[in-house]
Amino acid sequence: MAGIPVCVQCGTTANPFRCKVVGPTLGFLAFAVVAIVEWPVGAFVYLFKHRKGRRIMAHPAAVVYPSVTSTIPI
């Protein structure tokens, strides 16, 4: 039985409860959606331009997940 992925980040100072659930979970879902599109594109580009392909494949983890996670404080 598959469930909804829930990510929990404890020890943060973004809110008084020191735990985040919504931000990391939405960040993971955004990461997965973007990765489905960008990883195949990055793999194709990697065949011709190695650095550019690596940058495209790293974009979901380096940019999308942190920006979505830090935007939502709960």
Results as ranks from 00 to 15, higher is better:
Met1Thr: 06
Gly3Asp: 09
Ile4Arg: 14
Ile4Trp: 14
Ile4Ala: 11
Pro5Thr: 14
Pro5Glu: 12
Pro5Ile: 12
Val6Lys: 13
Val6Asn: 07
Val6Gly: 05
Cys7Asn: 13
Cys7Val: 14
Gln9Leu: 14
Gly11Arg: 10
Gly11Ala: 08
Gly11Glu: 07
Thr12Gln: 08
Thr13Phe: 13
Thr13Ile: 11
Ala14Met: 10
Asn15Arg: 13
Arg18Phe: 15
Arg18Leu: 15
Cys19Met: 14
Cys19Gln: 13
Lys20Ala: 09
Lys20Glu: 07
Lys20Val: 05
Val21Ile: 15
Val21Lys: 02
Val22Cys: 11
Val22Trp: 07
Gly23Cys: 03
Gly23Pro: 03
Pro24Trp: 01
Pro24Glu: 02
Pro24Asn: 04
Thr25Arg: 03
Gly27Pro: 03
Gly27Cys: 12
Leu29His: 07
Phe31Lys: 06
Ala32Met: 09
Val33Gly: 15
Val33Pro: 02
Val34Trp: 04
Ala35Gly: 04
Ala35Gln: 01
Glu38Cys: 13
Glu38Gly: 04
Trp39His: 11
Val41Ile: 15
Val41Leu: 15
Gly42Pro: 02
Gly42Lys: 00
Ala43Asn: 03
Val45Leu: 00
Val45His: 00
Val45Glu: 00
Val45Thr: 00
Tyr46Glu: 01
Tyr46Lys: 03
Leu47Thr: 00
His50Lys: 15
Arg51Ser: 08
Lys52Trp: 10
Gly53Cys: 00
Gly53Met: 01
Gly53Tyr: 00
Arg54Ala: 10
Arg55His: 12
Arg55Cys: 08
Arg55Val: 07
Arg55Asn: 15
Ile56Trp: 03
Ala58Asp: 07
Ala58Thr: 02
Ala58Ile: 03
His59Ile: 04
His59Tyr: 12
Pro60Gly: 06
Pro60Cys: 05
Ala62Pro: 01
Ala62Ile: 05
Val63Tyr: 13
Val63Ile: 11
Val64Pro: 04
Tyr65Gly: 01
Pro66Met: 09
Ser67Arg: 10
Val68Ile: 15
Thr69Lys: 08
Thr69Gln: 11
Ser70Lys: 15
Ser70Arg: 15
Thr71Lys: 10
Thr71Ala: 15
Thr71Ile: 09
Pro73Gln: 05
Pro73Glu: 06
Ile74Leu: 10
Ile74Val: 06
